[in-house]
Design a protein around this nucleic acid. Structure first.
Lengths: 345, 345
DNA sequence: CACCGGTACGAAAGCGCTTACGAAAGCGCT
DNA sequence: AGCGCTTTCGTAAGCGCTTTCGTACCGGTG
């Protein structure tokens, strides 16, 4: 919108510095072919005048777009907003701008967002959040992104392995196993799982970890109630209600993320079921509020902020032949929502 | 970054539709001077080919930048991420992109962010979050924004009244009053306040509301402990610790936002002080997790998502001569963190 | 039938920047 | 002194779009 106005252009800076437009451009871009003396003069004049390049002109002319597009499932979910916080930290340091797009947990919309970012020629795209088990969905996204990379775009994903690009990967399976082992170690056997949308790979992976831990004790996940519902607080509430109704003797609930765990806790509170005395509950992610719930939630910590930082840092590095993968640590955080199983009345 | 590549340009669409570049541009922009027949043909071809305009070229050529810059104090604070959610909803509907900038609660950095967005020529700027009581800070921000408006930029602010632009304003004072009245009504007299950064107008306004309610009962805020600390969970913890140490007979704590309330609850839990039996606690904002805390937090609800939506909608409307103000509703939500005062041992 | 106002379209001029490409100047060498 | 090389800088050609201006053509009028 802003009309041309009397805005400062690169020519103005160049004039004031007594050099040509081209030289000024080179000097500010830090390319060589400019003597250090001239370069520093240009930089200083630019500083004094408070010059800021017009990014539209810059990008149009073939320079790098300094915008990073971040695609998340849901902006107001703490898991994603903590990741966004990390991305924004790095972006701020490098003078990049972050555009956040919301896919609303709809793979179709997500693909549209990605395509739109590409068409917009943002310089970097980061896709955060679980992949989908539907191979078609993943193939479409992969195709769009590798096309984009071929044109020089930078990409990194978080928590998604099937996209053929640099990825930051938490070990969801190990996390699930740790969680289940913790409960098994406390003596729980009647364990139920409040799982998120079945279509998500993250759900499948965490579930696989749970299954592995159970097998270690000679148990089979198939014998336990696994209720799939939305990967949100609301979904957690719904899942807990079903678990309580259909499997009243359950002594522990594994929620596959903290949002669901919060829903589970809320249902338990509503039904006046004491946690951890009558029911142990665990979550996954350790979003920052998890510590402040009552009882404090036992969960597996993922370093979301770092994950965001790592993803952007990876995307910024020179592209390598084959996709890099960095796995994040994870760590069981035991708080007050779990306790040894107690003999029931 | 993306190299020119074989991307679809407007010329391509124009050619395929058998019209000139200029006509195609007009047709897609919906300006008149194009027959409906030609216009719909162009639109259809564009659709078929999946054409997306290059926003850099478009903006450079003087079209409206379709980016909205959203400046918030802290991205990973639920208060702001819920606002962001609302902004993004509207932006998505209109095909706008949202750039979120993080000021880190530093007025200097905030001003830099605003200036940067202006220099970038984003079409719309939304500034969310409390203003500062320092007149210089507000004057600088106001100057930058009105300059921007003079050049055709659209602006709206949320929760800030001194910037001379369209604003969405919650009634912080009334909210503070309602909160204090609720506690007074429950018989509390030894009330402490966990207040945020003194430099923030929001803190001052909410405090003024509390003071007004107290006056209604013949009490004076100056006689009560008001502990200023960061407007965050961490700040809430610190404030609660000081309150407990210095005023052990306190029976109720007013936290001036939910983040602080969560910190307060966390400290109380650590010190094994039962809420609401031995201490009532109230917050402000009703962020979505407030309902899931234990005990459920009594607080004043602000419609954050709507506020984000309203702000963008206002900014999008044709500019009016004088700044518009829309006030938001607020509503006391009583949950389980407050109870009648009980005689102390 | 010449004339005019209006509408539908095309040609071309930028927007502010990056980046070939080429010119000029400095250097060491023969 | 003359040659080729490198370094430093200026000239100019776009990037893909919007928009001004001008042209062609329409129907209706005198």
């Amino acid at each position: 919108m802003p009309k041309p106005g009397p805005r400062l252009r690169l020519v103005d800076v160049a004039e004031r510095a007594g050099v040509s437009l081209a030289t000024a451009s080179r000097a500010l871009a830090g390319r060589d072919g400019v003597s250090e003396e001239v370069a520093s003069r240009v930089r200083q004049v630019s500083q004094e005048l408070g010059y800021v390049a017009n990014p539209y002109a810059r990008t149009l002319a073939g320079g790098a777009s300094s915008t990073v597009g971040l695609v998340v499932h849901q902006v107001d979910d703490p898991y994603f907003s903590e990741i966004a916080g990390g991305v924004i930290q790095i972006a701020d340091e490098r003078g990049l701008l972050v555009q956040i797009c919301h896919s609303g947990r709809d793979p179709g919309h997500e693909l549209r967002q990605i395509r739109h970012l590409i068409a917009q020629r943002v310089g970097i795209i980061i896709v955060a959040g679980s992949g989908y088990r539907d191979a078609r969905v993943e193939a479409d996204a992969k195709a769009a992104l590798s096309d984009y990379q071929r044109q020089g775009g930078r990409v990194a994903v978080i928590g998604r392995h099937s996209l053929g690009v640099d990825a930051v990967l938490p070990d969801n399976e190990a996390g699930g196993r740790v969680l289940a082992e913790h409960l098994l170690g406390l003596g729980h056997r009647r364990i139920a799982v409040a799982a998120g949308d079945e279509a998500l790979t993250t759900v499948a992976d965490r579930l696989a970890g749970v299954a592995a831990a159970l097998r270690g004790q000679g148990l089979d996940l198939a014998d336990l109630p696994v209720v799939h519902s939305a990967f949100t607080r609301e979904g957690g509430r719904a899942a807990a209600e079903r678990i309580l109704a259909e499997h009243p003797r359950t002594t522990a609930i594994i929620a596959l993320n903290d949002a669901m765990a919060m829903g589970v806790l809320s249902t338990l509170r509503a039904q006046r079921i004491a946690v951890p005395e009558r029911m142990s509950v665990v979550g996954f992610d350790d979003v920052s509020v998890a510590a402040d719930l009552a009882p404090g939630l036992t969960t597996v910590r993922l370093p979301m902020t770092d994950m965001g930082r790592m993803a952007l840092a990876m995307a910024l590095k020179p592209v390598s032949a084959r996709p890099r993968r960095r796995s994040t640590g994870h760590q069981l955080v035991v708080r007050d929502s779990t306790a040894p199983v107690t003999p029931r009345a």
